[in-house]
Structure formats: structure tokens, C-alpha cells
């Protein structure tokens, strides 16, 4: 079942490709979002246990069975904070892009360099 890891890495590589090659600021922000999704998904995939249940105890559940069946809660706790940080970073990047648009009148990175001289 290594195929899932490989597909997740392909998603990561698409994000890197977009950041390096694309010339439009909005496309770069979207590529960064895709990169973020791929990294978060990879963390959760590493922590998955086969036929696992969510790491949330229900009343009246047997504790030994819960310990044996639950998926890894530590990557989930790390990813939960990472997703909200991703939203904050997206907001900051959109703010910078809007500022650049107001200054240069375009989202294109190459034209910005030419206008600056």
C-alpha cells in the first residue's frame, strides 16, 4: 500500500512546481495552499491504523479495546494547529498580493520587475 504515499508526494510535487514556475501571484498562493494540504494529509496518513477508530473515548467503552484500535492521535494534534496557521498565512499572502496590485496594477511577477526598473 505504498501507492498512497507516492500519490501524496505527487500532490506535494505539484505544489512545488506551481510555486517555482507560475508567474501569477494568485496561482502562487493557490500552489502554496495545495502544498499545505499535501503535508497535512501526509501526517494523517502516517498515523493511520488499519480499521482504526477516532481517538475519542465514548462512555461505556472498553479501555483495552480503545487502546488497541485507535489511530495515532499525535499527528492529528499537530495538524489541527497547522491548518489554522495555514489560513493565517494565506490571509497574509493575499494582503501582500493586494498591496502589490495596488502599487503596480497587475498580479504578474515579471511585469512588476520591469516596472521597477
Amino acid at each position: 500500500m505504498m501507492l498512497i504515499y507516492v500519490l501524496c508526494m505527487i500532490l506535494f510535487a505539484i505544489g512545488i512546481y506551481g510555486i517555482v514556475v507560475k508567474k501569477n501571484l494568485v496561482k502562487i498562493i493557490i500552489s502554496f495552499c495545495i502544498l499545505d494540504y499535501a503535508v497535512n494529509l501526509f501526517f494523517i496518513l502516517i498515523g493511520y491504523k488499519k480499521d482504526g477508530i477516532a481517538p475519542i473515548m465514548m462512555p461505556g467503552q472498553d479501555k483495552a479495546q480503545f487502546v488497541a484500535q485507535t489511530v495515532d492521535p499525535l499527528p492529528q494534534a499537530l495538524v489541527l494547529t497547522s491548518i489554522v496557521i495555514g489560513l493565517g498565512i494565506t490571509i497574509l499572502m493575499v494582503a501582500i498580493a493586494i498591496r502589490l496590485y495596488d502599487k503596480y496594477g497587475t498580479f504578474d511577477v515579471m511585469k512588476m520587475r520591469k516596472l521597477k526598473g
Binding site: 489554522v84 489560513l87 496594477g105
Partner: peptide, 23 residues
């Protein structure tokens, strides 16, 4: 913290915008 911060950021993105058209 998260709710108020996101609302403030959204207001900053939409309302405080400096619009300079025509150049």
C-alpha cells in the same frame, strides 16, 4: 482569539482597501 482575529483580517482585506484606479 481565532474568531475575532479572522473577522478582523477579513475586514482588513475588504474594507480597508486602497483603490487607485486609472493609472
Amino acid at each position: 482569539k481565532v474568531g475575532a482575529g479572522l473577522f478582523g483580517a477579513f475586514i482588513a482585506l475588504t474594507a480597508f482597501r486602497v483603490v487607485k484606479k486609472g493609472d
